[in-house]
Amino acid sequence: MSQEYEVLCIRCPKGCRLRITVEGNAVHVVGFACLEGKRFGEEEVRNPRRIVTTTVRILNARYPRLPVRTAEPVPKDRIRDVIDALKGVVVETPVRRGQVIVKDVAGTGVDVIAERDMEAVG
């Protein structure tokens, strides 16, 4: 018994229309333009995941917020948990791009990393 899905690939702005067939344990994806897309298609049916991008509070920087994101996609139904887990997080300058801000956020096994450098000011 096979099941078919059609989803929009969200890994890049191209938005490929993926047609995904699931037969038992086998997942077959067509319509992708890159391997990222193939992987996305496979995951989207089994375990839909998203990169979460948000900000955390930072002190003594040019702006009061530091943009951060999950280093890897997290399960879609955990997005809210990730956001909630970042509430109250305060970071000190300086920060480097890619620096881990929160390890294993909300028990997802994924780290939250800084999106940019932020120097101390004043």
Partner: peptide, 25 residues
Amino acid sequence: LDQCIHDGFGTKIFGKALSGPEFAG
């Protein structure tokens, strides 16, 4: 790019989806 903190930048140039600040960085 500093305000575009969402991901999806640079798939053609870097082959991966970066955020705006990362791309600018």
